[in-house]
């Protein structure tokens, strides 16, 4: 299948994603707390969504009722949302340094009333899919076949919440085709691997059994993610779940696949090492992009 995004476009997204990873670690380190693991696992997905042009949402149309929308259901990954909002110019990169501080717009979990670009406040897990389904249905009521698409990112641990399955049956029953969910399938939650804490497999079969069209993808292959997002947006027969296989903590060697890096800031030495690794990734991505 021909890619929906040009090879140059994909290299640009990869470069931006590498900068976002740097920003995520940097802002969490400065804040002294936050959730690096789930922010880093979702970086390539969120970068692809905002920077490929597939989602019609940018800094100039945030008040346009016809824009596409993104709901970060796994709200603890706020840093990845702030990092991408910096990429599209909704906030200054400088402001990222205020994460989690008193009077900052960058709350520990995304706050709809404080920061433009946050479609709804999240942080209590299990609610984003219902909200997104309601949004998508409302848009369908208003705009019919021209309705914008609502994208939402949920965690695999989050999908243990019963409400997620209430939303799953609802979106299928009402045939909400302008709804695209992405599962950040990193097989980790706070207390360990999901497969040990509360197994969520077989993920694809579960969603298919609920009547969803499922697309499986490597969540760190930007070209594949973009293709999946485009296919999902174009799909007209019902809601779509993109099961994105990811690595929690992706991009920082010592954070990868470690439950311990779910919700902890790196100390000074760890920050130094992580940022050095990420700088090298940025340099490599820039070289690719400019080659």
């Amino acid at each position: 299948m021909a890619s929906c995004v040009t090879p140059d476009g994909i290299k640009k997204i990869a470069y931006s994603a590498s900068v976002m990873r740097y920003d995520i670690v940097d802002m969490i380190s400065k804040a002294g707390s936050g959730h690096p693991g789930g922010s880093l696992s979702a970086t390539d997905i969120v970068a692809s969504l905002y920077l490929s042009g597939i989602m019609n949402c940018n800094k100039d149309n945030l008040d346009d009722p016809r824009r596409d929308r993104f709901v970060l259901s796994k709200g603890h990954a706020a840093p990845v949302l702030y990092a991408v909002l910096a990429q599209i110019g909704v906030i200054d990169r400088e402001e990222l340094g205020t994460l989690r501080q008193l009077h900052s717009r960058l709350q520990g979990h995304p706050d709809h009333l404080k920061l433009p670009g946050v479609e709804v406040s999240t942080g209590s897990l299990g609610q984003g899919l219902s909200i997104s389904a309601g949004m998508a249905l409302g848009l369908k009521m208003s705009y019919g076949s021209e309705a914008p698409t609502v994208f939402t990112l949920i965690g695999d641990g989050e999908s243990q919440e019963g409400q997620v399955w209430e939303a799953a049956e609802f979106a299928n029953h009402y045939g909400i085709a302008n709804l695209v969910a992405i599962l950040d399938y990193n097989n980790l939650q706070i207390d360990g691997h999901c497969s040990d804490v509360m197994d969520v497999s077989p993920v694809t079969k579960r969603w298919e059994a609920f009547g969803w069209h499922v697309i499986e993808v490597d969540g760190h292959d930007i070209e594949a993610v973009c293709n999946a997002l485009q296919e999902a947006k174009d799909y007209q027969d019902g809601p779509v779940m993109i099961v994105a296989k990811t690595i929690k903590g992706k991009g920082v060697s010592f954070m990868e696949d470690q439950a311990g890096w779910h919700g902890k800031a790196p100390d000074a030495d760890q920050t130094k090492q992580a940022l050095e690794e990420l700088k090298a990734t940025i340099a490599a991505a820039r070289e690719e992009m400019e080659a």
Binding site: G134, A167, E169
Partner: peptide, 23 residues
């Protein structure tokens, strides 16, 4: 009238989503 079935949590958040589209 949107009937969500016996799923009250979904009911509240679907309403939340609808309100975000001007309803």
């Amino acid at each position: 009238l949107i009937n969500v079935g016996i799923a009250e949590q979904n009911m509240i958040d679907v309403a939340a989503g609808l309100s975000l589209t001007g309803k």
